[in-house]
Amino acid sequence: MRIFNFFRPTPPPKPESSAHQAKERLQIVMAHERANRESPDYLPMLQQELLAVIAKYVDVDQNKVEVKLDRGNDFSTLEVNIELPPGRPEPLRPRTSPKVAASR
């Protein structure tokens, strides 16, 4: 213990220090976890419903769907990449709702 530091409070970690990075990472990830603690995990359902809508128009291979998430401090981004089958230059009319198609 250095005697001159005895009465000083612990200095906050410098912004570039690894301890500061640790705190920031924890704050971001834990804010999300605490907010979602009571609600069910919605991402699998969101994905299924999105796919169900898209499958009405095109054939989608479940394996060609990529879902990416980046949690940030101010906002998070959800990126859904769906690879469409080749050889369909123009958008299809809905396949499973003939009523909608007929009313066009």
Partner: peptide, 9 residues
């Protein structure tokens, strides 16, 4: 591993 912000499933 430093990928905690990218976990989806």
């Amino acid at each position: 591993m430093g990928c905690e912000r990218r976990v989806v499933f």
